[in-house]
Simulated assay, not measured.
Amino acid sequence: MPRVLTDERRDLVKAIADFCRRECGTKEQRDELTAGGREPHNQKLYEKMAELGWLGIVVPEEYGGAGRGMADLCLFLEETAYGLAPISGFGTTVIAAAAYDKFGTEEQKRVVLEGMAKGRVEAVSMSEPGAGSDVGALTCRADGADGGYVINGQKTWCSNAHIADHILLIARTSHEGSKHEGLTQFLVPADAEGLEIRGIDTMGGREVNDLYFTDCFVPDSAVVGTPGQAWSQLMTGLNLERMILAALMLGTARRAFDDTLAYVRQREQFGRPIGSFQALKHRIADMATELECARLLVDDVAAAIDAEPGRVFAREASMAKLKCTELAKHVALEGMQMMGGYGYATEYGMEALLRSTVVSTVYGGTSEIQREIIGKTYGL
């Protein structure tokens, strides 16, 4: 189904696609950019995109960005994911930047938003060893001290902390009230004294980290927004985080589908292309239909968010995240099955797509959590 885009958006998509084909279109290029798949972010490539103005796509114009909305952001994310551009730092940077844009001081905005447009990376740290889906259970504390706060505790699964300029930290500043009260957001320099960043090896390469805070002092000016109100502040960013992940996985699912389609058209067994056999042809048809449904969902929710930027689309954003991440995992699994042994070979790349899609149903709120949220919006 043809996608109806404005001329400006069509030009953006084409420019991104051309850039990805030129800069990271071959496996040899991507291996060189990512140390053989170990490093999912390449800063030099990232800064090239910054020079083209793409990294500031949603940054307000007064801070050096283009000031565009969710629909444009989703197109950028989808196309870079489809093009396999190694810029994993962008997603967390957008999420962090949105928090500073809404709640930060003018100085915080200048540092983070202008830095984002120029190609700097930001990270967000919420999860702890004992607090994942239940963010309100976090225990990393920031105790008031003369002129600021002293932070102690451990964070985990912090994406891109090792390449970030700052960490947007959510820590407990009070135990009064419910577990969702007394949480505060802080801007913590990644090189702050008392902060140790230790990488966690995963099958997706070096992307996530443990953070250890030991008497790490930050001044009062590091507080982002109102002390004790981080939970309500975080809720305003749910649309963004879920749509970022939905758009990324939509692009990844498209890539897995196209790679699978190319293979089943070319691969011959029993004297004809394997895609001509009904067992595979119908699975291709089902995946293509589901991809169109997912694309329409992402486009529609993004347009709704742009039309009402102050509204939290909890149901719709969770649906988009759930649909796109589960679909991407399904398409990559189907691709691996249809490609047989080649699906497992690093030469063909499907195994890498599978690794990146499986984890997408976990981070940013698991599929189970998304279903719980959607169910609650129906009064269940």
Rank of each mutant, 00 (worst) to 15 (best):
V94K: 05
G56N: 08
F103A: 01
T105L: 01
D101Q: 14
L73A: 08
E122H: 06
V94A: 02
A71L: 11
G89H: 07
A66K: 15
A123E: 15
G64T: 06
A131Y: 01
K102Q: 13
G136L: 10
E107T: 11
R120P: 01
M116N: 13
K118S: 13
E106Y: 04
G136T: 13
G89T: 08
L84G: 07
L113W: 03
A131H: 01
I87A: 08
W54T: 09
E62I: 05
E122N: 11
V59F: 06
S125N: 06
L113P: 15
A99R: 02
K102A: 10
L73I: 05
A81D: 00
F90D: 14
R110I: 08
V94Y: 03
G136R: 15
L77I: 07
E78K: 13
G91F: 08
G91V: 10
A137K: 03
D134Y: 14
E114Y: 04
D72I: 06
E62V: 07
E79G: 05
Y82S: 06
A117P: 15
L84N: 14
T92K: 02
T93C: 01
G67H: 06
V94M: 00
V135Q: 00
L84T: 11
G119V: 00
G132S: 12
E62N: 09
S125E: 06
A66L: 14
L55E: 09
G91Y: 09
F90Y: 12
E128I: 14
Q108W: 04
G104K: 04
A131C: 05
G104W: 05
G53K: 15
R120H: 14
A99D: 04
I57F: 10
T80H: 10
E107H: 11
T80F: 14
A96E: 05
T93V: 03
A117T: 12
Y82P: 00
V121K: 07
R110Q: 11
A98I: 00
L77A: 03
A85H: 13
G83E: 06
G65D: 08
G132K: 15
D101P: 07
G91I: 10
V111W: 06
M70Y: 11
